[in-house]
Amino acid sequence: MSDDDLLQVDDLGRSFGGFVALKGITANFGRNRVTAIIGPNGAGKSTFFNILSGALKPSTGSMRFRGNDLSKLQQHRFVHLGIARSYQITSIFPQLTAHENVRIGAQAFVSRYNIWTPRASYHDVSERAEQALADVGLGGARNRIAATLAHGEQRALEIAIALVADPKLMLLDEPTAGMGPEETRAMVALIERLAADRTILLVEHKMKMVLGLCDRILVLHHGRLIADGTPAAIQNDANVRSVYLGQSLGYA
């Protein structure tokens, strides 16, 4: 693992009974880079993401983040080490304001669930929430009820909730799912801003977006890593093209 690497996975695998969902995944992820994980349905992308976020334990192999062995840690420890995740299905409190949603995230992270500490003592919680909203372009929507936000704004709000933990690695699960072209462009711009000082790993099906946004692409198929390279290399990889049934990887 070089000094430039933030995350290292080595021979990672996961089985469910007799079914092997992931096998032999080895890869290093550098700092302040955007990497996409792609593959057909059932390729193992969700399993890989669930392991990287601590939701699942690997059956085999190891993973290290900033020198820390993650293999046996509980999921809540991943957040405190600097790993945050957004999900394909937006997870927010719809009846609270945007600011209240983010403030709850900040308060939970700061308080470490200590019920005896007065909330008033956390002077920076509100400020952190304000900054996170500003970072995702929702500063002007702080008092809006989350349910009234557009779909793209709700996805940005979820990212703001993750940002209050000051993550160094963000795992984004289909961040543009359900978005039209304008919302997709706004999300791409947000991801580019986030990547200025953190590492981004994302699962995404919009190949045109992936090819234009990412520094690197990993391709999974039947739980195995079949390609790892730049967008140009992946686009011209014969094995990858065969997995996608001969389709051009330049489609939207």
Rank of each mutant, 00 (worst) to 15 (best):
V20S: 06
Y87S: 03
I226D: 08
R77T: 10
T97D: 03
G13D: 12
S62F: 11
S59Q: 06
I115S: 13
E204W: 06
S248E: 15
N101D: 06
N50H: 07
N114F: 09
L169G: 00
L201K: 01
L249P: 01
R144Q: 14
G250P: 02
Y251D: 15
F48C: 02
L225A: 05
Q88Y: 09
K208P: 00
T26I: 08
A84C: 08
L70S: 03
Y251E: 15
A98E: 03
I89Q: 14
G250M: 13
I92D: 01
P181Q: 11
D10H: 13
E127K: 14
A21D: 06
T176I: 14
A150R: 00
F109G: 04
E182Y: 07
K168V: 03
G39M: 13
D237L: 05
A227L: 11
N50F: 05
Q131E: 15
R77Y: 06
G229W: 11
P118G: 14
V20C: 09
N28Y: 00
R193H: 12
Y244S: 00
I200L: 11
D135V: 07
E100F: 03
D11A: 15
V243W: 06
G246E: 14
G140L: 11
A227W: 11
G13C: 10
A227K: 04
L138F: 03
A162G: 12
E153T: 00
L138A: 02
A84T: 09
I226Y: 08
M63C: 02
V219I: 09
G212E: 15
P167T: 04
M207H: 04
L12W: 01
S46F: 07
L218Y: 12
P231T: 13
A55D: 12
I38C: 04
V243L: 07
V243H: 04
H221A: 12
A177N: 03
A227I: 10
F109M: 11
I191G: 00
